[in-house]
């Protein structure tokens, strides 16, 4: 028995040593948790990192993507904090939606400081849309009409009350001087269902993200009234005015990024931030980001941590104001 103990102790020492050297170099194995079903936004976020890290040879072996469905990322959040707190090989996908859920206390007992926020690598922006044959031509039209007859406008979105899509609609309702809580809000299952409901005339207005709507906008099936970004978006949407241009000062950035466990060492954290900073400057990454319909948004390390915490604070205020 003593030899057995000595052996395990030596093995442990060797592993510690290996761990220490690995912090400087790339981890042997890397993993990304997507807190939803395959094909969703978290999956897309993980694949963005996995594909571009491999393409730029920042990692040697493909990054494994693990799906951990539940509570729109809540299960993954709790899993990382309680089971993988010091796992430096693991990054987990997150989005502004995660920050919104944290703000509403829907991520269990943990708040935003329970993990180490790593990097935001891309963003999408909120949009408000109507069917192509709608008499509403601009966000201003909508706000004016909604102020008069809010009950004429059932609004659809791809999430429940309190979700990002609901919030975007709530901001519009607020601008029209109407209570967000009395919106005729229709919670549909994802962006696809929103578009069919809009085309079928079942809802009059929809809120969503620019990337999922842009193709339907250019195909002439729906009209994007406004993008909820600070500046106009490039590409196919360059002619769509921002909400601010139309006199309604609201914006909604849907960032996509990653966090690591709370006990990941500073050295490992620095490896990831350094790697992502180099990655974000490569053309391979720009191509991957564009093919996933994301706009440039590179906020890494401390700046990202501050951004997430600021968002959570802002969302808390918004949710309280909307009466949730």
């Amino acid at each position: 028995m003593p030899t057995f103990f000595r052996n395990t102790r030596m093995l442990a020492c060797a592993m510690v040593l290996l761990g220490a050297t690995a912090a400087a170099a790339a981890p042997e194995k890397t993993e990304c948790i997507a807190g939803a079903k395959p094909g969703g936004g978290f999956d897309l976020t993980c694949r963005l990192a996995a594909n571009s890290l491999l393409a730029t040879k920042a990692i040697d072996k493909p990054m494994a993507v693990t799906y951990m469905e539940g509570g729109v990322g809540a299960v993954a959040y709790n899993h990382v904090i309680s089971k993988r707190a010091d796992d430096a090989t693991l990054i987990t996908a997150a989005s502004s939606g995660s920050a919104l859920l944290i703000a509403q206390g829907k991520f269990g007992k943990y708040d935003a400081s329970a993990v180490r926020w790593l990097a935001g690598l891309g963003a999408d922006y909120g949009v408000l849309v109507v069917a192509a044959n709608s008499p509403i031509k601009s966000l201003k039209d909508l706000v004016d009409a909604y102020a008069k007859t809010p009950n004429e406008f059932p609004i659809g979105g791809g999430g429940a009350v309190g979700s990002q899509d609901w919030m975007k609609a709530a901001l519009m309702a607020k601008a029209a001087g109407q209570a967000p809580k009395s919106m005729r809000y229709v919670a549909l299952e994802g962006g696809g269902a929103v578009i069919t409901a809009l085309e079928g005339g079942h809802i009059k207005v929809a809120s969503g993200d620019a990337a999922e709507m842009v193709a339907h906008h250019t195909a002439g099936k729906i009209r994007i009234l406004a993008v909820m970004s600070k500046e106009r978006l490039p590409g196919a949407l360059k002619d769509v005015p921002t909400a601010k241009e139309q006199g309604i000062d609201v914006d909604w950035t849907v960032w996509r990024g990653f966090y690591v466990g709370p006990n990941v060492s500073d050295a490992d954290y620095a490896w990831w931030t350094g790697t992502f900073e180099k990655l974000a400057a490569t053309p391979e990454f720009a191509k991957e980001r564009e093919s996933r319909g994301l706009f440039p948004f590179t906020v890494i390390g401390k700046a990202f941590d501050e951004r997430v915490k600021a968002d959570v604070a802002r969302f808390k205020a918004l949710a309280a104001e909307a009466g949730l």
Partner: peptide
């Protein structure tokens, strides 16, 4: 699980894995 309309959790007993 998560009530798809109101966003409230039903019968989840504060267990995030029951959220869906």
């Amino acid at each position: 699980g998560l009530d798809p309309t109101s966003g409230a959790y039903r019968y989840t007993f504060d267990e995030p894995e029951l959220g869906d």
